[in-house]
């Protein structure tokens, strides 16, 4: 999309284009995607800004439009980076489904613009259009499981003492 056409398209139309490219929304009906695009907010972060931190209350999902974000986990004073996401990277989406505390940090490694969806609006749309939205819920959960596997692989590669896994208290909450 060139800068000119970009300028003449409303933010709503631009948001719809972005969301369409994400796997959970691939098969979502037009009028639902349009609603998501409508409730979505553009949020900008400077380099080094935290988008969210571990143990804060989770309430928003983020899609990176430009820039990059590192996801990391902190335990006993150690910070372990798990993944770096660039444009079209989608994270924090489980907060759309439930209220919990973040188990990860997300920090911008460069000036970053994101498109963000919040749980309250997502739920209101879900309640109004349950049949159309339940597929989105399924896709989000599948996406989560996939990413969890990727994170587990990263962690396992980094454990120096595999036998010590059994002694870890409570497991790691990702």
């Amino acid at each position: 999309m060139t800068a000119e056409t970009h300028q003449n398209r409303s933010e709503l139309a631009q948001n719809m284009d972005y969301l369409r490219q994400l796997s959970p929304f691939e098969r979502t009906p037009f009028e639902i995607i349009r609603l998501y695009a409508y409730i979505a907010r553009r949020i900008r972060f400077g380099q080094g800004d935290f988008i969210f931190r571990q143990n804060q209350q989770a309430s928003r999902a983020y899609l990176i439009l430009s820039g990059s974000v590192v996801l990391s986990v902190e335990k006993s004073g150690q910070t372990l980076p798990l993944q770096v996401l660039g444009p079209m990277g989608f994270f924090g989406y489980m907060s759309l489904l439930a209220c919990y505390d973040w188990g990860l940090n997300a920090q911008a490694t460069a000036a970053t613009e994101t498109l963000s969806l919040d749980r309250e609006s997502f739920r209101k749309i879900l309640i109004r259009f349950p049949d159309q939205c339940i597929e989105v819920v399924d896709s989000l959960v599948r996406l989560r499981m996939q990413r969890m596997h990727e994170h587990m692989e990263t962690l396992i590669k980094n454990i120096k003492d595999p036998g010590g896994l059994a002694k870890l208290e409570g497991g790691i909450n990702l």
Binding site: L35, Y38, S121
Partner: peptide, 16 residues
């Protein structure tokens, strides 16, 4: 036109 198309089925939920 855009608002009517978008929020037609939402009813009068002030939130939207």
């Amino acid at each position: 036109v855009e608002t009517v198309a978008l929020l037609g089925k939402i009813g009068d939920d002030a939130f939207f």
